[in-house]
Amino acid sequence: MTGLADRMPSGRATRPEGINAPLLRRAARQEGIGFALLSLPGVIVVVLVLVLPMAWLFWMSAFDNAGNLSLENYERMLRPIYQRTFTTTFRIAFVVSIACGVLAYPIAYLMAQSGPRLSMLLMLCVMLPFWTSVLVRTYAWLVLLQRTGLINAALMDLGLISEPLALVHNELGTIIGMVHVMLPFMILPLYASMKAIDPALLLAAANCGATPAQGFRQVYLPQTFSGLASGISLVFVMCLGFFVTPVLLGGGRVSMWAQQISDNISLYGNWGAASSLGVVLVLCTAFVLGGMRMALAQIEKRGR
């Protein structure tokens, strides 16, 4: 009996049997085509508005300004000015993703461990910045961190400093703003992975004589690695191509990858340079995300 009973829960057709099989198969095929057609309008939009221009950029990156096939655009990336952009970008992305991991862990942990009220309150604290426009938050940081801003004023009033600190229009300001923008993206997957941990495991660890610290280190922490890893790599990748906050808080002094791409178009009209930078950015993104997926699959396999 592989009939109705198996097929009801998922609603997905099984291979038809018996005398009407050819007819049923044809009906299933027609139905399948109908379902595919449902996604067609969406597919057209994504292909036309995303895949096509991306393919165009990839294509353009392989030609020099005279229109000849060449690697000129990729060789240009070895120049010191681009090297500096790459090192800045990777350094900032690294610092921001580690900082996000460190800040996200305690808050996600408390959210997962405490009662409904506290965890709801903390969730609201995460959702407010999550839903607030990046522009608004970047603007707020600009105002907070500027020379006459709240932080400098408070530090001077307390007598801790006599001169205002340079907190913005530099790498420090960029990093602070980016951590604020990225933190919710780190907390949410981490919280999900912590919520999935069976509390009985910690009880069992304690029963076996583990101190709370041992229980946390040896039982709890390893189970959050996958959430931590996926959050960190997500944040890392988003940092690599991030435009708004570095431009506004870097004040033109922190040249990250996305700004370099944008400058090549709006200042120099150099499509070859911009597109080759873009191609490498996409490849880096795919590499990090793909690597993370493979690593997670490995962890899962070992866990079984």
Binding site: V51, P53, L240, F243, I261, G278, T285
Partner: peptide, 28 residues
């Protein structure tokens, strides 16, 4: 496999860095 592929295609706009989408569309 086909429907999984479609799902992957629909995730693409989230994965491609916005700055690239921007210059690609500017060009198109």
């Amino acid at each position: 496999v086909f429907s999984q592929g479609l799902r992957g295609l629909f995730m693409l706009p989230m994965l491609v860095p916005l700055i690239l989408v921007a210059i690609g569309l500017f060009f198109l």
